[in-house]
Design a protein around this nucleic acid. Structure first.
Length: 894
RNA sequence: GGGAGGUUAGCUCAGCGGUAGAGCGCCUGCUUUACACGCAGGUGGUCGGGGGUUCGAUCCCCUCACCUCCCACCA
């Protein structure tokens, strides 16, 4: 065991390895050029045909379940989807290979507004408006469109390689999912958590519907603050109000002041005259509405077009006048302005006020305005009858679930954002004045009785009237999305799938829909199933290209399908995985795609090198009792390290680190060093070659397995050649890595070995010698790490080969030789001509070393350091100092 | 008005108590029979500024500057 180690039971804890090739005679050759388009589709179809995407094994055994964040039916795959789904697929494949029954449920979202807009746009090309068709026909048109070109995105996910269980594909408007939506509504209604009422909501005049608070995006704009004088009989100076929206004054029904504001005390109890309309409106005192610090201390009250004013009006029993209609045009209540667009009306109102000398002051004013998330129209606060979810009772348990750890966020920092929002949550407006979506299951009879039920009522249950009419509105799309993790399994029915696969394990999505979707799913899951719908939420960042948001105008959009064509699905996936960071933005660049493609090609070519050797031999993996060479031991140790790192990082959702670890192992260690060392061994074809072939098989096999979640197609293709078992890598065991199988001695030895080889190589260039010029090397057995020298002696043939030595000797440095110390090993090289001490590079290195030596020795003379720093750290510093001094001495030798 | 995150090599980003890493780029050499989508060697950083804690800080604390994002009913 001193020099050579016998392979022990290192694999005791490892999963069983693949059986021998089914047919050793099967061709093991790969095409010379790597072209992923030759096999991507083939493997995808094979996996699907073999049922690999469906959970195998008996119900109840350990499983791993995810539901896809359902993309819009209208959607095309963009880089953001590709990123999120790649992450999910990596998880799915990793867990599947780790022996769990994996289910990943696909599907699409009906996406109310978005889809309706797509079809409306299509109709407008034919010169038709949806109103011309009527509701039923329009909806039929949407379904027709969906049959033709909806769901295209699902096919695109196949190109990506997503191992989704297509037999369970769901759509939020499927009959059973619609039933779930209706049932959820009915239950919340019956529990008093859904109510209907007239309130000021966010209204998009262009979309013609109410939207929720979340669907309004606020932007700062440069506007004006207008001060307008309202006459107040008995108060000469009148009431000067400040407003950014003068057109709304037409709907004013009061003027408010603060009860304790001396500036406005003269107005108390008075009546003002609304300019233009010449309507008398009361002055009310409202300490909630009026901020004494702001403006003139007088606030105009427009209950129908401002939520605060509405609240105030409620408190004072004021009427509300709707002066801006649902189309954004002034209503009949606006008198002479009726029919004008709201912004045109603003201009006219201002002109009139100016004329009347009532526009006291206009100042530039920067303030936030709400815009429709969908169409960017300025949102109009609008008083209308809507349905709402009373959210606080739902939020409470959802907050608790995260506090208790029933649901955990990865990265954890998102929990804070979640709490922040959940603790200040407002009721949710869920009715939408659209046609495409889940119709609200509320029916009103001619006597005004409202019925909410799972089945359409034939007659009013209250009065027997035979004519209950269903509410024309549909539900916010997110109302159905929030049920997704259980509605896909057949909820509310107690289906076997629901029992077997709910709650799910991990939810992966962008942080941008934390409130829209994630929070609501937690609330709905707890309310309807009594369980949190998933135990972990992985919120990932949003993809940026070169640090900038993707936009078509900037031309920096990466189309994932084009990228797949150009680089291959594997390369794109690997790029996305390595770009994954814990931060809020994920930067993807074309250069990284190229680099991943190169990596894929590297794997291909390494396999082309390795496979023929395995073909010629019957060797499988290294056997117990095989005499492993030091390089064999080293690469197997590194393999364990890479595998355990990959698992560790996957566990922590650090896909970038996992990908890096595998990249580094495969390229830098396996290809650049082990393969180069093993080539001559294989050529000699002695007994060590037999062992090396086993090691190679193990390395390639495990590398393919480790990389499979990241690069499924390429690895499966090579796997077939390696094992003769086509299409089985996807269900082969994932190597977990075994830290206790690490071989420190081999790692230390190879570390020194590699450093010495590199030193000889760069010395050659430093001295202007031909790259292939053979050089004599002497290693000094009295080096500080002298134990390494005999070990290196065992590596003599490799050293000679890789460093291109003319000779290798052991002993003191020959007279006049160039000397250096590398990793504690004193080396000497006799150079053909030795330009004495004139080498600039050596001078530079010497200067660096001296600097470090000074710093180190100062540190080691510091009593506080010696006393307080941990012993291993001090010891390391001592060793480093010693080696640096030796190195300096060696280099300084003329 | 509140939060959150960021500022590290020319670019895009990792690292986060023991004097810095990757990929790409750049420079120098190589037809080394797996790979030029390659090999070998190299260049490149007062880790945003200033304080503090510590034997020791890129990493912890404070502060300033600048970016990004989220939330928010001050007319």
């Amino acid at each position: 065991m001193s020099d050579k180690r016998v392979l022990d039971a290192a694999r005791d804890t490892a999963p069983p390895t693949t059986p021998p090739p089914a047919s050793p005679a099967a061709s093991m050759s790969l095409e010379k050029t790597f072209d992923p388009s030759h096999f991507e589709q083939r493997w995808y179809e094979r996996w699907e045909a073999d049922g690999r995407f469906q959970p195998g094994g008996p119900a109840g055994s350990p499983r791993f379940v995810m539901v896809i964040p359902p993309p819009n039916v209208t959607g095309r795959l963009h880089i953001g989807h590709a990123y999120g789904r790649t992450i999910e697929d990596i998880l799915a494949r990793w867990k599947r290979m780790s022996g769990l029954r994996v289910l990943w449920v696909p599907g699409t979202d009906h996406a109310g507004i978005a889809t309706q807009m797509v079809v409306e746009r299509q109709l407008s090309k034919e010169g038709v408006r949806r109103q011309d068709l009527g509701r039923d026909e329009f909806i039929e048109r949407v379904w027709a469109w969906r049959r033709e070109s909806g769901d295209a995105i699902l096919g695109q996910l196949r190109r990506l390689g997503c191992s989704l269980d297509w037999t369970r594909t769901r759509f939020t408007m499927d009959p059973d999912l619609s039933r779930a939506v209706r049932h959820a509504f009915v239950r919340l209604y019956e529990d008093g958590l859904i109510y209907r009422g007239r309130y000021v909501v966010n209204w998009c005049p262009r979309c013609g519907t109410a939207v929720s608070d979340l669907e309004v995006v606020h932007r700062e704009v440069d506007g004006s603050l207008y001060r307008v004088k309202y006459d107040v009989p008995g108060v000469p100076e009148g009431a000067v109000v400040a407003t950014t929206r003068p057109e709304t004054m037409l709907g004013d029904t009061a003027v408010a002041i603060h009860p304790d504001d001396p500036r406005t005390s003269a107005l108390r109890g008075k009546t003002a005259v609304l300019p233009i309309m010449n309507r008398e409106i009361p002055v009310v005192e409202d300490p909630i509405l009026v901020d004494r610090e702001f403006g003139t201390g007088v606030v105009k009250v427009t209950p129908a077009h401002d939520a605060n004013d509405f609240d105030s009006a409620q408190r004072h029993g004021l009427p509300a006048l709707v002066v801006i209609g649902p189309d954004g045009k002034m209503t009949a209540e606006a008198g002479e302005y009726a029919g004008l667009d709201r912004f045109e009306a603003r201009k006219r109102v201002l002109a009139r006020l100016e004329e009347q000398g009532r526009l006291v002051k206009v100042e530039p004013y920067r303030h936030a305005l709400g815009y429709c998330q969908r169409c960017d129209t300025v949102i109009e606060p609008y008083l209308s009858q809507q349905w709402f979810v009373k959210i606080a009772p739902l939020a409470e348990p959802a907050i608790a679930a995260v506090e208790k750890g029933d649901v955990r966020f990865a990265p954890e920092s998102w929990a804070k954002t979640y709490f922040e929002w959940m603790r200040n949550i407002h009721d949710w407006c869920i009715s939408r004045q659209l046609w495409w979506g889940h119709r609200i299951p509320a029916f009103t009879c001619s006597n005004g009785h409202v019925t909410v039920s799972d089945e359409d009522p034939a007659a009013c249950p209250t009065c027997g009237a035979a004519d209950p009419v269903q509410d024309p509105d549909v539900l916010d799309t997110w109302f159905s999305s929030q049920l997704w993790p259980f509605s896909v399994f057949g909820w509310p029915d107690p289906t076997p799938d629901l029992k077997d696969f709910y709650p799910t394990d991990v939810l992966v999505t962008g942080y941008d829909i934390l409130f829209f979707w994630v929070a609501r799913m937690i609330m709905a899951g707890l309310r309807f199933t009594g369980k949190a719908p998933f135990s972990t939420v992985h919120l990932h960042g949003l993809v940026r290209i070169g640090g900038e948001k993707m936009s078509k105008t900037k031309g920096n959009v990466i189309d994932p399908l084009e990228a797949i064509e150009e680089f291959g699905a594997d390369a794109m996936r690997f790029t996305l995985a390595s770009a994954a960071s814990s931060g809020p933005t994920v930067s993807v660049e074309r250069g990284r795609m190229t680099s991943s493609k190169h990596f894929a090609t590297k794997i291909w070519n390494a396999a082309r090198l390795i496979l023929p050797h395995l073909e010629a031999s019957a060797e499988r993996e290294p056997h117990r009792g095989d005499e492993l060479s030091l390089p064999d031991r080293w690469i197997l140790s590194r393999l364990e390290a890479a595998a355990s790192e990959a698992n560790r990082h996957l566990e922590g959702f650090r896909f970038d680190e996992a990908a890096n670890a595998l990249y580094h192992f495969f390229w830098d260690e396996l290809c650049d060093w082990y393969l180069e060392m093993v080539k001559p061994v294989l050529a000699e074809n002695g007994p060590p070659a037999r062992v090396a072939r086993g090691v190679l098989r193990r390395c390639l096999q495990d590398s393919l397995a480790l990389l499979h979640p990241f690069m499924p197609f390429l690895t499966e293709e090579v796997w077939e050649k390696l094992t003769g078992r086509p299409g089985t890598l996807i269900v082969s065991p994932y190597p977990r890595g075994n830290e206790s199988a690490r071989d420190d001695a081999a790692e230390e030895a190879l570390g020194a070995f590699r450093a010495i080889v590199s030193r000889v190589r760069n010395l050659r260039i430093e001295r202007g010698l031909a790259p292939a010029a053979p050089l004599p090397l002497t290693l000094d057995p009295s080096s500080s790490r002298r134990a390494l020298v005999p070990v290196l002696e065992g590596l003599a043939p490799h050293l000679t080969h890789l460093a291109r030595l003319s000779s290798l000797r052991f002993g003191p440095a020959p007279e006049g030789a160039f000397r250096d110390v590398v990793e504690g090993v004193a080396i000497a090289v006799e150079l053909p001509e030795r330009p004495a001490g004139s080498d600039a590079r050596v001078e530079k290195v010497l200067a660096e070393i001296s600097g470090e030596i000074d710093a180190l020795s100062a540190k080691l003379q510091n009593p506080a350091y010696l006393e307080k720093a941990p012993a291993p750290v001090v010891e390391k510093a001592r060793l480093r100092l010693r080696e640096l001094e030796q190195k300096r001495a060696a280099l300084a030798t003329p």
